[in-house]
Design a protein around this nucleic acid. Structure first.
Lengths: 195, 195
DNA sequence: GTCTATACCTAGATAGAC
DNA sequence: GTCTATCTAGGTATAGAC
């Protein structure tokens, strides 16, 4: 427990981010103090400033990392298939990815208004890129004649909003596996966009 | 402008709630101070305590009023029709109601974690009652054979989550009327639950 | 790298004058 | 009913010792 014995930069840094993530998700950015984050990590508040220039940057980097991870994994999905297969892959991917990172997802959606305008613009652009990827699948399906949608952009948002809802109720270890949840939502998504 | 001239309880009270509503929605409950609300109203901070015992109660009553209004209007929807007609009426009602009260909706979904446990339980129970009403429609459709749903409760949440998404992008005066938005979402909802 | 100490500010809420 | 003044607590961030 010799916390003052030496250097821990490679250990403390991740622990600071993990504690901030957890606390921001539970109580909200504005309601969590630097002192409380420090207490969670086991250091004094001043020590946090070895790892972040300020609280705002701590929030921003958590959100930025999350969105970049999301985009990177999304980009790995098969892009050569037909739109129906791609949409199913997306549906299951989105559910899996988001349910594996509930705290990150919660923050990314709830704390946008606590970002500075510059930081907000960065996150919004990442979110827009993700939406663009989904819209591309829907437009492909329109071109192939399998999807019937009055507005692909609105359908994109509707599908994403529906899938995001999973995180408000799903808990691992509950009556349903994630695969079963994927089946249920894919059934609804498929029918919702079908011609 | 004689703010100190006399009594304004019937004017100031609603103005306090309106200012709190607006500021909580824009910046979040924890980020808004009583001084700022008072500044918006044009009084000093101490004067707010003529209208609310504390900041928590101010938040809670905004959310409670919103949820009770929602339930009251929902209860007025036609209940004698078939499930398809009832679900369409619900879809259009939900979109109309929520888009007419963006600040209330935002607060009701974002500030749950800032409620005391007792207040949270009240709001959650109101939200549960609303979900129950939608689930009843879906179960009726299952019984009538028009809807095919693996799980009516999950479908309820999926439909509500999808419809709630409207508030993140719809703006009155934009390219679409609310009626057109209702058409687009009803198309997706209807297909998503259909047999 | 972390500590203690602290500068400086703002928070929610209350008291008593008017 | 509102004001001014104030209490007590806690906020972010920094300085300098170790």
């Amino acid at each position: 427990m010799a916390r003052t014995a030496g250097s821990h930069s490679d250990i403390t840094g991740p622990r600071v981010r993990a504690a901030a993530l957890r606390l921001f998700a539970r109580h909200g950015f504005a309601a969590v103090s630097m002192r409380r984050i420090a207490g969670e990590v086991g250091v004094q508040a001043g020590a946090l400033y070895n790892y972040t220039p300020d609280k705002q940057t701590l929030l921003f980097e958590l959100m930025q990392t999350h969105m970049e991870d999301l985009l990177a994994d999304f980009a790995r999905l098969e892009s050569g298939a037909d739109a129906l297969a791609r949409l199913e892959a997306f549906t299951r991917f989105h559910i899996d990815f988001h349910s594996s990172r509930p705290d990150e997802v919660f923050i990314a959606y709830m704390e946008l208004r606590n970002l500075t305008p510059e930081n907000f613009a960065v996150i919004e652009s990442l979110r827009g890129a993700y939406e663009d990827g989904v819209t591309a699948i829907l437009r492909q399906g329109q071109a192939e004649g399998t999807f019937a949608l009055p507005d692909a952009r609105i359908a994109t948002r509707a599908v994403i909003a529906m899938l995001n809802g999973v995180n408000t109720w799903f808990r691992a270890g509950g009556p349903l596996t994630l695969g079963q949840v994927g089946d249920i939502y894919w059934d609804m998504v498929r029918k919702a966009v079908s011609a």
